[in-house]
Write a protein that binds this DNA or RNA. Structure first.
Ligand SMILES: [Mn+2]
Ligand SMILES: [Mn+2]
Ligand SMILES: [Zn+2]
Ligand SMILES: [Zn+2]
Lengths: 136, 136
DNA sequence: TTGCAAATACAACCAGGTTGCAAAATAAAG
DNA sequence: CTTTATTTTGCAACCTGGTTGTATTTGCAA
């Protein structure tokens, strides 16, 4: 069962409307969503509550949280999907949309002695086909 | 002549204390600085004025503006220096410091038809040697 | 059904950045 | 050295994305 209520129950967290609806939204999404994206889908969920709901979904393993290159958090359902992992993303600076690219992420660089690597991120920005077409 | 007043004069912009002092600060810096970095060096320059001063230096070619991976702008003097161009950078998540790495930036990926590339950025985060040592 | 821990709403706050506008400063012309 | 037109500055207000504190409400187990 991948319905939100059962997933939440199985994860051992309280089943609340905010969690159920946020998880539904994440499951329905085709791309990782920002807090603002989700908020516009669930206008009657309090802003701060939504931040905490999303973090709780991450904490219990039902969602993934990643920073995009603008430093904005993006959330996705982490079911059996395992999407968006072995490829990089393109961000349109005009519409803000994210597109999956076929390319693999670049390998992490060698660091000087004593340095510890936490994360690498490859940011690719530009104008998507739609936006480029409209302005032309 | 690479003194700020002459550079500003030669660039055809008005010579103001804020511009002179900001350009001095950028020239003295060993790394690209954020607005906050520069502000702490020039506490009596108005916050908004500093944003505009920095943008004016960029507009007249005396400074370079780049976004770091947290989406924060970083400014550097763009004299005959041409530093920080062919290599990538490491950001310490503990102290916020930036270190130059020897590695070259990864090549830009192929994009789907119609997409236009503006910029790529490789973000490498972790803990620097100093911070790693202190916590150990 | 009751009771307590967990979750929610609301207000306040923060960083980084932008906008509008009146007052002040630059630099050119007289 | 003044006058003047144009920039620049300072200040207040605002914006997005995010966090913290706390009183109230809710989930759910006993
Ligand atoms: Mn993807
Ligand atoms: Mn460098
Ligand atoms: Zn677009
Ligand atoms: Zn450090």
């Amino acid at each position: 069962m991948s319905n939100p209520v059962d997933l939440l129950r199985a994860a051992g967290v309280r089943v609340t409307p905010g969690r159920v609806r946020s998880l539904e939204a994440l499951q329905a999404a085709t791309q990782p969503m920002s807090h603002a994206d989700i908020e516009s889908l669930l206008p009657d969920v309090d802003r701060v509550t939504l931040y905490r709901v999303l973090d709780s979904l991450v904490a219990c393993g039902l969602a993934l949280k990643a920073v995009d290159t603008r430093g904005v958090f993006r959330f996705s359902a982490s079911g059996p999907h395992r999407q968006h992992d072995g490829h990089i993303h393109f961000r349109c600076t005009s519409c803000g949309g994210v597109s999956c690219l076929k390319a693999a992420p670049p390998p992490p660089p060698k660091l000087p002695r004593g340095f510890r690597l936490d994360a690498v991120e490859f940011d690719v920005r530009g104008t998507c086909a739609q936006c480029a077409g409209q302005s032309a």
